[in-house]
Design a protein around this nucleic acid. Structure first.
Length: 482
RNA sequence: GGAGAUGUGGCCGAGUGGUCGAAGGCGCUCCCCUGCUAAGGGAGUAUACCUCAAAAGGGUAUCGAGGGUUCGAAUCCCUUCAUCUCCGCCA
């Protein structure tokens, strides 16, 4: 969400920054709308003031027993009420429009973020280690894993569909070892506090971090909305008598069928706005696409003490993504799954500290790959490749021998106060001065992709995998997976 | 999942249709008084937004949240969220 006051003061600057992300200039539209709303609001408020004043006089007249005067005043108030109703409705709808417009707008990049349309324009900042040289033809991680009998896509597909995997034996152990190693590093050496947050969150939490309302199709819904349907239609039909006669048993009706039926039945009413079906509302819940959502929302709707910043939090959680827009991409192997594990890093900082914290966070993520002795490079995303909520993003890309290229394994973003505004997260700056915090998030790292990188970079010609030194203690002393 | 109860300012707590943005207490801030172990007196003490060049001032909204009834709602009605108690189920 954007600061209307800031846009009011620097409309050109906002337009220029949005232009870098390929957006039309919008500040004039926003400010016109804002001016319209404020003007209408004033009218409403004046009418409300008049109504309040007269209502008090009515009370006084009634107390005195002067019924005639009270009646006279009542008719006087009627006019004000009309204004309030009419203008109030207009204000509500205008405000909803503006809110929709603003909440759909991405964050503005920092001025020095490299400009460009897509990932082609990302800027490589530095590299660590030379790409792994193998003196035989490198195999892909999926081929290696399947040959070991510890990575099974077919079995997963039978129960869950494509883009799922069953790991077993030492690969499952490796997954756990990686996560434990990452958590230990981030908590014991980098000062992040380990959390075990909810994996299911309400829609307002996702709105706060920016996944909603624009990216709903990327999320897995976990709504248990069936009872909402029943409650809702109970208000319309007399279900009690119907269920007594045994003619309707709603517990046997699938909720999606019911939704479909209701939407068809009340099509006209829905379109005209007369009827507001309780579908797709606040009560919805989703599986988290990243622990960034759960961790960042820990400070939502709160005012934290200045001294407690920066807050550094980490969590190892599964992440769930529908990958709706990526059909055909990375269809083989574990690179792009519907479910994967990730150790997430989140920092909550004062505004003046966020850029420094961002660099620090990047180092904390890089350190995982350094200790695993995996080759990687760091790129800064250009304006066109930035995520919705980010003002600046660093990606860490690990070397994958089978693909002969670097692939993203971590993404560290400074969101400024963008998310903080959407979730109303503030800190006490002064005695009577509460300001929005800055939020940052980064992967430290994606466990699944790290497992892929270990398999491919540590593979031997016979298909066995050498366990990276730092992981051996986490693997119960095992040094070779075969 | 069933039955019941509750949700008021930083905290406690009064308040069942009219001068209630909200008594009282605690806490906090400032001032005064008093030197004999700590107390007494007074004043102030929510947030957001709008208006105003700014301050002062004025206005609107907010008593978990959203909606409704009414000239007027903390108070009545509906929905919803959360908490507590009991029962059921369950890792």
């Amino acid at each position: 969400m954007h600061d209307l006051k800031a846009i009011r003061e620097n409309p050109d600057q906002y337009d220029a920054l949005w232009a870098k992300r390929g957006l039309e200039p919008l500040s004039k539209k926003i400010l016109d709308q804002d001016a319209l709303i404020r003007k209408a609001k004033q009218v409403v408020q004046e009418a409300e003031a008049a109504r309040n004043k007269s209502s008090k006089l009515i009370g006084q007249a009634m107390a005195k027993g002067d019924k005639d005067e009270a009646e006279r005043l009542k008719t006087e108030v009627a006019g004000a009420k009309n204004v309030i109703a009419a203008m109030g409705a207009q204000v509500d709808s205008e405000q909803a429009q503006l809110r929709d417009l603003l909440s759909g707008l991405p964050n503005v990049p920092f001025a020095d973020v490299p400009e460009g349309e897509d990932e082609e324009a990302n800027v490589e900042l530095h590299k660590h280690l030379e790409p792994t040289k193998l003196d035989f033809k490198p195999k892909g991680h999926d081929e290696l894993g399947e040959a070991l009998g510890m990575m099974d896509f077919e079995t997963a597909a039978k129960m869950s569909g494509s883009r799922f995997v069953v790991l077993s034996g030492m690969l499952s152990r490796l997954d756990r070892a990686l996560a434990a190693f990452m958590l230990d590093l981030q908590t014991e050496e980098h000062g992040y506090v380990e959390h075990s947050p909810p994996l299911i969150v309400r829609s307002h939490a996702l709105y706060g971090t920016g996944q909603l309302p624009k990216f709903k199709e990327d999320l897995y819904s976990a709504s248990s909305s069936f009872h909402k349907f029943v409650d809702f239609i109970s208000n319309i039909f007399d279900l009690e008598s119907a269920s007594k006669t045994g003619k309707i048993d709603f517990s046997n009706i699938d909720s999606s069928v019911l939704e479909f039926a209701l939407k068809n039945t009340f099509q006209d009413e829905i379109l005209s706005g007369e009827l507001d079906l309780p579908f797709g509302k606040e009560t919805e819940a989703y599986l988290i696409p990243t622990a960034e959502v759960s961790l960042t929302n820990i400070v939502r709707e709160s005012i934290v003490d200045r001294e407690t910043l920066p807050m550094r939090m980490t969590a190892h959680t599964p992440c769930f993504r529908s990958e709706a827009g990526s059909a055909g991409r990375d269809t083989k192997g574990m690179i792009r799954q519907h479910q994967f594990n990730k150790v997430e890093l989140v920092s909550i900082t004062r505004p003046e500290d966020s850029e420094g914290e961002h660099k620090r966070m990047l180092k904390c993520a890089e350190e995982v790959l350094r200790r695993l002795e995996l080759p990687y490079r760091v790129v800064e995303l250009c304006t066109g490749d930035l995520g919705f909520g980010a003002r600046r993003t660093f990606d860490i890309e690990v070397w994958l021998p089978s693909q002969d290229t670097y692939r993203e394994i971590s993404s560290c973003s400074n969101c400024g106060d963008f998310q903080a505004r959407r979730m109303n997260a503030r800190y006490k700056h002064g005695e009577k001065d509460n300001r929005f915090v800055h939020t940052l998030n980064g992967s430290g790292l994606a466990v699944g992709r790290t497992l892929v990188a270990v398999l491919e970079n540590y593979q031997n010609e016979d298909g066995s995998i050498t366990v990276p030194k730092v992981l051996v203690p986490y693997m119960g002393g095992v040094e070779l997976i075969k």
